Simulated assay, not measured.
Amino acid sequence: MGELYVGLMSGTSVDCIDAVLVDFSEENSPRPHILATLGHPIPGALRDAILALCAPGPSELDRAGQLDSQLGRLFAEATLALLERAGITPEQVTAIGSHGQTVRHRPPGTVAHPFTMQLGDPNTIATLSGIATVADFRRRDMALGGQGAPLMPAFHRAAFATAENDRAVVNIGGMANITELRADGGIRGYDTGPGNALLDYWIGLHRSQPFDRDGAWAASGRANPELLNRLMADPYFSAPPPKSTGREAFNATWLERACEGLELAPADVQATLAEVTAASIADAVRSFANGGELLICGGGARNSDLMQRLQRRLPTWSIASTGDYGIEADWLEAVGFAWLARQTMRGLPGNCPGVTGAARETVLGGIYPA
Protein backbone atom coordinates (compact mmCIF):
# COMPACT_ATOMS: atom_id res chain seq x y z
CA MET A 1 0.00 0.00 0.00
CA GLY A 2 1.16 3.54 -0.78
CA GLU A 3 1.75 6.66 1.29
CA LEU A 4 -1.58 6.96 3.12
CA TYR A 5 -2.99 9.93 5.02
CA VAL A 6 -6.38 10.68 6.53
CA GLY A 7 -7.90 14.15 6.20
CA LEU A 8 -10.61 15.34 8.62
CA MET A 9 -12.66 18.49 8.13
CA SER A 10 -15.64 20.01 9.91
CA GLY A 11 -16.46 23.46 8.60
CA THR A 12 -18.66 26.39 9.52
CA SER A 13 -21.76 24.56 8.28
CA VAL A 14 -21.25 22.00 11.11
CA ASP A 15 -23.22 19.45 9.09
CA CYS A 16 -20.89 16.45 9.46
CA ILE A 17 -17.24 15.41 9.64
CA ASP A 18 -15.75 14.90 6.19
CA ALA A 19 -13.20 12.08 6.39
CA VAL A 20 -11.03 10.92 3.48
CA LEU A 21 -8.31 8.33 3.04
CA VAL A 22 -5.76 9.57 0.52
CA ASP A 23 -2.83 7.93 -1.26
CA PHE A 24 0.05 10.25 -2.13
CA SER A 25 2.37 7.57 -3.53
CA GLU A 26 2.15 8.75 -7.16
CA GLU A 27 4.90 11.37 -6.98
CA ASN A 28 4.40 12.51 -10.57
CA SER A 29 0.68 13.08 -10.20
CA PRO A 30 -0.44 16.60 -9.22
CA ARG A 31 -3.49 15.20 -7.46
CA PRO A 32 -3.66 12.63 -4.67
CA HIS A 33 -5.77 9.53 -5.10
CA ILE A 34 -8.84 9.21 -2.86
CA LEU A 35 -9.23 5.64 -1.61
CA ALA A 36 -12.28 6.08 0.64
CA THR A 37 -14.62 8.77 1.93
CA LEU A 38 -17.03 9.06 4.84
CA GLY A 39 -19.49 11.69 5.98
CA HIS A 40 -19.56 11.02 9.73
CA PRO A 41 -22.62 12.50 11.47
CA ILE A 42 -22.36 15.07 14.24
CA PRO A 43 -25.09 14.37 16.82
CA GLY A 44 -27.70 17.10 17.07
CA ALA A 45 -26.93 17.99 20.66
CA LEU A 46 -23.23 18.29 19.86
CA ARG A 47 -23.96 20.47 16.83
CA ASP A 48 -26.09 22.75 19.00
CA ALA A 49 -23.24 23.00 21.52
CA ILE A 50 -20.79 23.94 18.74
CA LEU A 51 -23.05 26.64 17.33
CA ALA A 52 -23.76 28.02 20.81
CA LEU A 53 -20.03 28.35 21.46
CA CYS A 54 -19.52 30.32 18.23
CA ALA A 55 -20.96 33.38 20.02
CA PRO A 56 -19.98 34.80 23.43
CA GLY A 57 -21.90 33.33 26.36
CA PRO A 58 -21.66 32.02 29.94
CA SER A 59 -19.23 29.31 31.10
CA GLU A 60 -17.35 29.40 27.81
CA LEU A 61 -14.14 27.89 29.18
CA ASP A 62 -15.87 24.87 30.71
CA ARG A 63 -18.02 24.34 27.63
CA ALA A 64 -15.04 24.65 25.30
CA GLY A 65 -12.95 22.21 27.32
CA GLN A 66 -15.65 19.55 27.32
CA LEU A 67 -16.43 20.09 23.65
CA ASP A 68 -12.73 19.78 22.80
CA SER A 69 -12.69 16.32 24.39
CA GLN A 70 -15.98 15.23 22.83
CA LEU A 71 -14.93 16.29 19.35
CA GLY A 72 -11.55 14.59 19.72
CA ARG A 73 -13.39 11.33 20.36
CA LEU A 74 -15.76 11.94 17.47
CA PHE A 75 -12.89 12.66 15.04
CA ALA A 76 -11.16 9.45 16.16
CA GLU A 77 -14.42 7.56 15.70
CA ALA A 78 -14.76 8.96 12.17
CA THR A 79 -11.19 7.92 11.34
CA LEU A 80 -11.66 4.34 12.51
CA ALA A 81 -15.00 4.03 10.68
CA LEU A 82 -13.32 5.31 7.51
CA LEU A 83 -10.46 2.81 7.80
CA GLU A 84 -12.89 -0.04 8.44
CA ARG A 85 -14.78 0.90 5.27
CA ALA A 86 -11.50 0.91 3.31
CA GLY A 87 -10.14 -2.31 4.82
CA ILE A 88 -7.04 -0.47 6.06
CA THR A 89 -5.39 -0.78 9.49
CA PRO A 90 -4.15 2.23 11.49
CA GLU A 91 -0.58 0.94 11.14
CA GLN A 92 -0.78 1.49 7.38
CA VAL A 93 -1.56 5.21 7.74
CA THR A 94 1.28 7.74 8.08
CA ALA A 95 -0.75 10.47 9.78
CA ILE A 96 -4.09 12.17 10.21
CA GLY A 97 -4.55 15.82 9.24
CA SER A 98 -7.31 17.23 11.44
CA HIS A 99 -8.51 20.79 10.92
CA GLY A 100 -10.71 20.70 14.01
CA GLN A 101 -13.95 22.61 14.51
CA THR A 102 -13.61 26.39 14.45
CA VAL A 103 -15.60 28.04 17.23
CA ARG A 104 -13.97 31.48 17.18
CA HIS A 105 -11.79 33.27 14.64
CA ARG A 106 -10.53 36.78 15.44
CA PRO A 107 -7.95 37.67 12.76
CA PRO A 108 -5.74 40.77 12.66
CA GLY A 109 -7.79 43.92 12.43
CA THR A 110 -10.71 42.62 14.49
CA VAL A 111 -9.22 42.54 18.02
CA ALA A 112 -6.11 43.86 19.74
CA HIS A 113 -4.67 40.36 20.17
CA PRO A 114 -5.73 38.16 17.23
CA PHE A 115 -6.46 34.49 17.81
CA THR A 116 -8.22 31.50 16.33
CA MET A 117 -9.69 28.48 18.10
CA GLN A 118 -10.36 25.03 16.65
CA LEU A 119 -11.64 22.25 18.92
CA GLY A 120 -11.11 18.50 18.64
CA ASP A 121 -8.25 17.44 20.91
CA PRO A 122 -5.48 15.94 18.73
CA ASN A 123 -4.06 14.07 21.75
CA THR A 124 -7.37 12.21 21.98
CA ILE A 125 -7.49 11.58 18.23
CA ALA A 126 -3.95 10.15 18.17
CA THR A 127 -4.49 8.02 21.26
CA LEU A 128 -7.83 6.50 20.25
CA SER A 129 -6.99 6.02 16.56
CA GLY A 130 -3.41 4.81 17.06
CA ILE A 131 -2.25 7.19 14.31
CA ALA A 132 0.02 10.24 14.55
CA THR A 133 -2.13 13.34 14.21
CA VAL A 134 -1.26 16.74 12.77
CA ALA A 135 -3.50 19.57 13.98
CA ASP A 136 -3.61 23.26 15.00
CA PHE A 137 -2.76 24.38 11.46
CA ARG A 138 -3.79 28.03 11.73
CA ARG A 139 -1.97 29.52 14.69
CA ARG A 140 1.62 29.42 13.35
CA ASP A 141 0.53 31.55 10.41
CA MET A 142 -1.15 33.98 12.82
CA ALA A 143 2.00 34.08 14.96
CA LEU A 144 3.73 35.43 11.86
CA GLY A 145 1.13 38.18 11.46
CA GLY A 146 -1.11 36.30 9.06
CA GLN A 147 -4.86 35.76 9.00
CA GLY A 148 -4.50 32.02 9.59
CA ALA A 149 -6.96 31.62 6.72
CA PRO A 150 -7.69 30.56 4.11
CA LEU A 151 -5.32 27.57 4.26
CA MET A 152 -6.29 25.76 1.06
CA PRO A 153 -4.56 27.98 -1.55
CA ALA A 154 -1.20 26.16 -1.31
CA PHE A 155 -3.00 22.87 -1.95
CA HIS A 156 -5.13 24.40 -4.69
CA ARG A 157 -1.96 25.56 -6.41
CA ALA A 158 -0.42 22.09 -6.18
CA ALA A 159 -3.57 20.40 -7.49
CA PHE A 160 -5.06 22.81 -10.03
CA ALA A 161 -2.64 25.52 -11.21
CA THR A 162 -1.91 25.61 -14.93
CA ALA A 163 0.21 27.83 -17.17
CA GLU A 164 -2.48 27.67 -19.87
CA ASN A 165 -5.00 30.08 -18.34
CA ASP A 166 -6.18 31.80 -15.19
CA ARG A 167 -8.17 29.70 -12.76
CA ALA A 168 -10.11 30.51 -9.62
CA VAL A 169 -11.07 27.91 -7.03
CA VAL A 170 -14.05 28.85 -4.88
CA ASN A 171 -15.05 26.83 -1.85
CA ILE A 172 -18.66 27.42 -0.78
CA GLY A 173 -19.06 26.01 2.70
CA GLY A 174 -20.59 27.85 5.64
CA MET A 175 -18.41 30.74 4.50
CA ALA A 176 -16.98 31.09 0.99
CA ASN A 177 -13.39 31.65 -0.05
CA ILE A 178 -11.51 32.12 -3.29
CA THR A 179 -8.07 31.07 -4.49
CA GLU A 180 -6.77 32.99 -7.50
CA LEU A 181 -4.36 30.92 -9.60
CA ARG A 182 -2.76 33.06 -12.28
CA ALA A 183 -1.34 31.45 -15.39
CA ASP A 184 1.95 33.24 -14.62
CA GLY A 185 2.18 31.46 -11.24
CA GLY A 186 0.79 34.24 -9.07
CA ILE A 187 -1.55 33.30 -6.24
CA ARG A 188 -3.91 35.13 -3.92
CA GLY A 189 -6.81 34.00 -1.74
CA TYR A 190 -9.25 35.21 0.88
CA ASP A 191 -12.70 34.69 2.35
CA THR A 192 -15.35 36.36 0.20
CA GLY A 193 -18.09 36.32 2.86
CA PRO A 194 -21.06 34.08 3.71
CA GLY A 195 -21.58 30.89 1.76
CA ASN A 196 -24.25 28.49 3.01
CA ALA A 197 -24.36 29.39 6.71
CA LEU A 198 -27.14 31.99 6.55
CA LEU A 199 -29.06 30.04 3.90
CA ASP A 200 -29.03 27.03 6.24
CA TYR A 201 -30.01 29.16 9.23
CA TRP A 202 -32.95 30.80 7.49
CA ILE A 203 -34.50 27.63 6.07
CA GLY A 204 -33.97 25.92 9.43
CA LEU A 205 -35.81 28.77 11.16
CA HIS A 206 -38.77 28.84 8.77
CA ARG A 207 -39.01 25.31 7.39
CA SER A 208 -37.15 23.18 9.93
CA GLN A 209 -34.88 21.85 7.18
CA PRO A 210 -31.09 21.55 7.56
CA PHE A 211 -30.37 23.09 4.13
CA ASP A 212 -32.06 24.34 0.97
CA ARG A 213 -31.76 21.34 -1.37
CA ASP A 214 -30.72 22.52 -4.85
CA GLY A 215 -31.61 26.04 -3.72
CA ALA A 216 -35.25 25.28 -4.53
CA TRP A 217 -36.70 27.54 -1.82
CA ALA A 218 -34.42 30.43 -2.78
CA ALA A 219 -35.43 29.96 -6.42
CA SER A 220 -39.11 30.26 -5.42
CA GLY A 221 -38.58 33.74 -4.01
CA ARG A 222 -37.43 37.09 -5.38
CA ALA A 223 -34.39 38.93 -4.08
CA ASN A 224 -35.36 42.15 -2.32
CA PRO A 225 -33.27 45.05 -3.70
CA GLU A 226 -33.28 47.07 -0.47
CA LEU A 227 -32.25 44.13 1.70
CA LEU A 228 -29.59 43.17 -0.84
CA ASN A 229 -28.19 46.70 -0.77
CA ARG A 230 -28.13 46.77 3.03
CA LEU A 231 -26.35 43.43 3.28
CA MET A 232 -23.82 44.17 0.54
CA ALA A 233 -23.00 47.51 2.21
CA ASP A 234 -21.13 45.62 4.93
CA PRO A 235 -17.56 46.98 4.89
CA TYR A 236 -16.08 43.48 4.81
CA PHE A 237 -17.01 43.06 1.15
CA SER A 238 -15.06 46.12 0.01
CA ALA A 239 -12.09 45.61 2.35
CA PRO A 240 -8.88 44.61 0.54
CA PRO A 241 -7.25 41.23 1.19
CA PRO A 242 -5.67 39.64 3.09
CA LYS A 243 -8.86 39.05 5.03
CA SER A 244 -10.83 36.22 6.62
CA THR A 245 -14.17 35.95 8.34
CA GLY A 246 -16.72 33.61 9.92
CA ARG A 247 -19.88 33.36 11.98
CA GLU A 248 -18.50 36.09 14.26
CA ALA A 249 -19.37 38.60 11.51
CA PHE A 250 -22.04 36.95 9.35
CA ASN A 251 -24.72 35.54 11.62
CA ALA A 252 -28.39 35.75 12.55
CA THR A 253 -27.95 39.08 14.32
CA TRP A 254 -26.31 40.58 11.23
CA LEU A 255 -29.24 39.46 9.08
CA GLU A 256 -31.93 40.55 11.53
CA ARG A 257 -30.49 44.06 11.78
CA ALA A 258 -30.56 44.39 8.00
CA CYS A 259 -34.21 43.24 7.88
CA GLU A 260 -35.41 45.87 10.37
CA GLY A 261 -38.26 47.99 9.00
CA LEU A 262 -38.79 45.81 5.92
CA GLU A 263 -41.83 43.63 5.23
CA LEU A 264 -40.36 40.52 3.65
CA ALA A 265 -41.66 37.10 2.72
CA PRO A 266 -39.34 34.40 4.09
CA ALA A 267 -38.71 32.98 0.61
CA ASP A 268 -37.66 36.43 -0.60
CA VAL A 269 -35.14 36.69 2.23
CA GLN A 270 -33.74 33.30 1.19
CA ALA A 271 -33.46 34.48 -2.41
CA THR A 272 -31.69 37.63 -1.22
CA LEU A 273 -29.23 35.61 0.86
CA ALA A 274 -28.46 33.50 -2.20
CA GLU A 275 -27.79 36.69 -4.15
CA VAL A 276 -25.44 37.93 -1.40
CA THR A 277 -23.41 34.73 -1.68
CA ALA A 278 -23.37 34.87 -5.48
CA ALA A 279 -22.68 38.62 -5.66
CA SER A 280 -19.80 38.58 -3.17
CA ILE A 281 -18.17 35.62 -4.92
CA ALA A 282 -18.70 37.14 -8.36
CA ASP A 283 -17.24 40.48 -7.27
CA ALA A 284 -14.12 38.65 -6.05
CA VAL A 285 -13.80 36.65 -9.26
CA ARG A 286 -14.19 39.75 -11.48
CA SER A 287 -11.54 41.59 -9.47
CA PHE A 288 -9.16 38.74 -10.33
CA ALA A 289 -9.63 38.43 -14.10
CA ASN A 290 -12.11 39.08 -16.89
CA GLY A 291 -12.52 35.41 -17.71
CA GLY A 292 -11.12 31.95 -17.19
CA GLU A 293 -12.03 28.73 -15.43
CA LEU A 294 -13.94 28.83 -12.15
CA LEU A 295 -13.73 25.60 -10.12
CA ILE A 296 -16.35 25.20 -7.39
CA CYS A 297 -16.09 22.95 -4.33
CA GLY A 298 -17.90 22.56 -1.03
CA GLY A 299 -21.59 22.00 -0.40
CA GLY A 300 -22.54 25.00 -2.51
CA ALA A 301 -21.39 23.15 -5.64
CA ARG A 302 -24.56 21.03 -5.32
CA ASN A 303 -26.85 24.08 -5.10
CA SER A 304 -28.06 24.44 -8.69
CA ASP A 305 -29.84 27.75 -7.99
CA LEU A 306 -26.64 29.24 -6.59
CA MET A 307 -24.63 27.97 -9.56
CA GLN A 308 -27.12 29.62 -11.94
CA ARG A 309 -26.87 32.91 -10.05
CA LEU A 310 -23.07 32.76 -10.34
CA GLN A 311 -23.19 32.00 -14.06
CA ARG A 312 -25.53 34.94 -14.69
CA ARG A 313 -23.10 37.25 -12.91
CA LEU A 314 -20.01 35.72 -14.57
CA PRO A 315 -20.95 35.12 -18.22
CA THR A 316 -17.32 35.15 -19.41
CA TRP A 317 -16.24 32.42 -17.00
CA SER A 318 -16.45 28.66 -17.46
CA ILE A 319 -17.93 27.30 -14.21
CA ALA A 320 -17.56 23.67 -13.18
CA SER A 321 -17.12 21.47 -10.14
CA THR A 322 -13.63 20.52 -9.01
CA GLY A 323 -14.85 16.97 -9.62
CA ASP A 324 -14.48 17.68 -13.33
CA TYR A 325 -10.80 18.40 -12.59
CA GLY A 326 -10.05 15.25 -10.61
CA ILE A 327 -11.12 15.84 -6.98
CA GLU A 328 -14.75 15.63 -5.95
CA ALA A 329 -16.15 18.91 -4.65
CA ASP A 330 -17.53 17.44 -1.42
CA TRP A 331 -14.13 16.09 -0.34
CA LEU A 332 -11.65 18.69 -1.56
CA GLU A 333 -11.10 20.43 1.78
CA ALA A 334 -10.60 17.17 3.68
CA VAL A 335 -8.09 16.08 1.02
CA GLY A 336 -6.40 19.44 1.50
CA PHE A 337 -5.85 18.80 5.21
CA ALA A 338 -4.41 15.39 4.43
CA TRP A 339 -2.04 17.23 2.07
CA LEU A 340 -1.17 19.80 4.76
CA ALA A 341 -0.45 16.99 7.23
CA ARG A 342 1.93 15.47 4.68
CA GLN A 343 3.66 18.84 4.27
CA THR A 344 4.10 19.07 8.04
CA MET A 345 5.42 15.52 8.36
CA ARG A 346 7.96 16.33 5.65
CA GLY A 347 8.97 19.63 7.25
CA LEU A 348 7.61 21.64 4.30
CA PRO A 349 5.64 24.92 4.42
CA GLY A 350 1.88 24.85 4.10
CA ASN A 351 0.91 28.51 4.03
CA CYS A 352 1.01 31.16 1.31
CA PRO A 353 2.20 34.50 2.76
CA GLY A 354 0.75 36.33 -0.24
CA VAL A 355 -2.64 34.93 0.76
CA THR A 356 -2.65 35.25 4.55
CA GLY A 357 -0.30 38.18 5.03
CA ALA A 358 2.14 36.17 7.16
CA ALA A 359 5.75 37.39 7.27
CA ARG A 360 7.08 34.22 5.63
CA GLU A 361 6.37 30.65 4.63
CA THR A 362 6.25 28.20 7.53
CA VAL A 363 5.51 24.63 8.49
CA LEU A 364 1.97 24.54 9.86
CA GLY A 365 0.56 22.62 12.79
CA GLY A 366 1.88 20.37 15.51
CA ILE A 367 2.54 16.63 15.39
CA TYR A 368 0.92 14.50 18.10
CA PRO A 369 2.44 10.98 18.10
CA ALA A 370 0.16 7.96 18.50
Rank of each mutant, 00 (worst) to 15 (best):
A132G: 11
S220R: 12
I367L: 13
G299M: 12
L231I: 06
T12C: 13
T133K: 10
Q101T: 14
I281R: 00
F211G: 01
S25C: 13
R138A: 05
G357S: 10
G350I: 07
H113F: 10
W217E: 09
I42G: 00
V285Y: 09
G57R: 09
R230H: 11
C352V: 12
T356F: 04
R286P: 00
A132F: 06
G189K: 00
D268T: 08
E248H: 04
A78C: 06
V93K: 01
F75A: 09
D15Q: 10
L205C: 11
G323R: 00
F137T: 07
I96Y: 00
G173H: 01
G57Y: 06
H40W: 14
E361Q: 11
T127P: 05
G7N: 06
L310R: 02
S220D: 14
L151E: 04
I281D: 04
A36P: 08
R286G: 05
A334G: 05
P210C: 06
G323N: 07
F237L: 04
G145I: 08
R222G: 03
L38A: 07
A265G: 12
L314G: 01
T133Q: 10
R188K: 15
T277A: 12
R31E: 08
S13K: 07
A45H: 04
T116S: 15
S25N: 15
T12L: 11
I367Y: 02
N229R: 15
A64I: 10
E164W: 02
N196P: 08
P235V: 09
Q118Y: 04
Q66S: 15
C352K: 08
G193H: 07
E3V: 11
W254M: 04
E60V: 13
V276N: 03
N303S: 13
W317C: 02
A95G: 10
V111K: 01
G215Q: 07
Y190E: 14
N229S: 14
M152K: 05
L348G: 00
Q311D: 03
S287Q: 14
